[in-house]
Write a protein that binds this DNA or RNA. Structure first.
Length: 205
DNA sequence: TCCGAGATTCACT
DNA sequence: GTGAATCTCGGAG
């Protein structure tokens, strides 16, 4: 299964070069597409979080560049993949100008195509599909995103984000504090589609 | 050089 | 609800 329109509707570099919270909100409802063995597997983005660089104590970029967070400081439109808790990968979309260190964490997707491949990658036993992609590390596991995908250009042909023709009119968007962070709790930089069953279980204020 | 915390998930009590 | 998986970085010693 391979649709040319998904490639044609790929978001341009300019989309990512804007303000991080604007990009975060506008990513909701769009498609995250992954090409694997010449197949397109994808999900609709239903939950994201903004991380605002050197002024955000919860961000990896807070203390400046390191080898790990290098990609966060690139120009918008690249994928920043980091390894955490000794076993999980998480995917971020780099936003804004080069050197800013801003990114949007992709927290949850609604599966749309390639469900069989994703289930296999996740080694899921039960039938509960709402939990297939309801967390940042689950997405990386299902879409086979790891160290090798850190720094991938989202304007290329491996991983990209596409316009969703059915979601051109913005839906209602909810916001909250971020999940799993102890610093920067005052910022409500998590955005999600309220009522969507594929949003992750973390439901802060 | 060592130690604790971390943008998490899952199995088990 | 609790703990284990065990990488990376920053801060203490």
């Amino acid at each position: 299964m391979n649709s040319p329109w998904l490639f044609r509707n790929k978001l341009p570099r300019e989309f990512y070069l804007r303000g991080t919270l604007t990009v975060a909100r506008e990513l909701l409802g769009k498609y995250l597409v992954r090409r694997l063995n010449n197949e397109q597997i994808l999900g609709m983005i239903v939950e994201v979080e903004g991380y605002l660089g050197e002024r955000d104590p919860a961000s990896h970029a807070y203390r400046g560049r390191t080898r790990r967070n290098e990609v966060m400081f690139w120009a918008g439109g690249y994928l920043y993949v980091y390894f955490t808790y000794g076993m999980h990968f998480c995917s971020n979309v780099v936003t804004g100008a080069e050197g800013k260190g801003h990114a949007v964490l992709i927290r949850a997707l609604e599966p749309r195509r390639g469900v069989g491949i994703m289930r296999r990658n996740r080694r899921m036993k039960n039938e509960e599909q709402t939990q297939l992609l309801s967390g940042p590390a689950k997405i990386c596991q299902a879409l086979q995103i790891g160290r090798g995908e850190n720094g991938t250009d989202l304007c290329g042909g491996e991983i990209w984000i596409a316009e969703n023709p059915d979601e051109r009119v913005p839906r209602r968007i909810a916001r909250s504090t971020r999940v799993g962070v102890s610093k920067g709790r005052e910022h409500r930089w998590r955005f999600f589609l309220p009522g969507n069953p594929y949003v992750s279980p973390g439901r802060p204020a």
